[in-house]
Design a protein around this nucleic acid. Sequence first.
DNA 1: TGAAATGTTGGGGCG
DNA 2: ACGCCCCAACATTTC
Length: 476
Amino acid sequence: MAVKTICWFRQDLRLKDNPALSAAILEGDTIPLFILDDETPKEWRFGAASRWWLHQSLMSLNNSLDGNLWVEQGNPEEILTRILKQTGAKSVHWNRCYEPWQIARDKRIKKTLTDFGSSVQSHNGCLLWEPWTTLKKDGTPYKVFTPFYKNGLTVQRSPSEPLNIPSTCELLECPMQDDKISALNLLPDQNWTRPIASEWTPGESHAHARLKNFLKHGIHNYKEGRDIPDRSSVSRLSPHLKFGEISPNFVAWQVKKAADSEQIDNLEAEHFTRELIWREFSYSLIYYFPKMTNQNFKRDFTEFPWRSDEQALKVWQQGKTGYPIVDAGMRELWQTGYMHNRVRMIVASFLTKNLMVHWIEGARWFWDCLVDADLASNSCSWQWVAGTGADAAPYFRIFNPVTQSQKFDSNGSYIRKFVPELASVPIKHLHDPSNAPEAELLRAGITLGIQYPRAIVDLKETRKRALDAYRGMREI
DNA sequence: TGAAATGTTGGGGCG
DNA sequence: ACGCCCCAACATTTC
């Protein structure tokens, strides 16, 4: 009788370049398993957009596996033990996860399964460089990005030839019904009005298509174009990476290949790779500083007088701040489950500095809305903007949403797309309608406070307020 | 992967 | 021709 083994899929919903899957298949008849984990801490359960994505991604994976994906919901420790018993499988493979609660969970499961007599092998399918390989010479983790990046490029492993989709895919037939994925209840209810589905197609093949398209078009102007929210110069691979529909190794490998063969410019390739390494840096940070997800990395911010302003938070969430670039970003997020990176920085600066609301509130809202919500990237990036993080922007670096808007959405097309009520406002006043002459707005069909809100705060005043608070905190 | 305040320079208008 | 002022353009400092 053939050896049976389990490949436990978690955040690696793909066949290509999947070390755990390849290892399992090499070992014997493989049971591809996904578990919707009951143990995920409540505050980090997926929001509706991510659940929608997960549903689609599982359907796609199941399809690639000829309908043989085993799908379960509950406590993975019990489920794995049960399946081992039930099938007589003798080993389990998975790709490592790095969130603090996942590490604790996996450690426990490994012990239980080993005690049970099964072998357990974990693999690296989610990162280029695992945290324990990126330490400084003195054995401590990097807290600054640039040295992390530079050292990494010279010392860490280069992307390796991606693993192929196992061709001799011996899968154990799944005994369950077809609607097992639907039974997870990941899809939203009837009131769902967000046009996420028209914006995105989850799944491994679309992840590959997106990368291919990016390497053909977007990357050629990446260095400049990545800051223009209305231009398609960014890869938009983030949700695919988050669910592991594509591996960072595969992405880095393709970029390197294209650069080596001079299909793309070296400089553009570097800038894009740099962003991939930011992701690695974030993973290293939460691995060594697991409290980053809930607490300021910089301890001197402990006493910072964040304002608890429910009303302001709500207005920000709804995209009704009266600053068009902020509102456009927040509405893009709500409607599409995504926000362009430049705009993420602008809205985050606005929330944490102009409104002086704690970054954790912003992180939670993003977590709820984003299809690419990733605990490491989300926590570290929020802390970066707020000035509380590792190698963060200094607190006094406060974005002016009007200036940023003029600079990066100079023709206003991003604003007009997501804040359609302002479509007829002439470009001269589009970035800051609250300071436009009443008559000009009226001609565009806008009365402030009716069709579009008046700015909720004064930029100059709130900037000063934030700086004073920052100074006050430092003097303690 | 800022912005505002302040400082410096240099050209042009003008008496 | 010269000094003076204005101010844009750029540089530096500060938050």
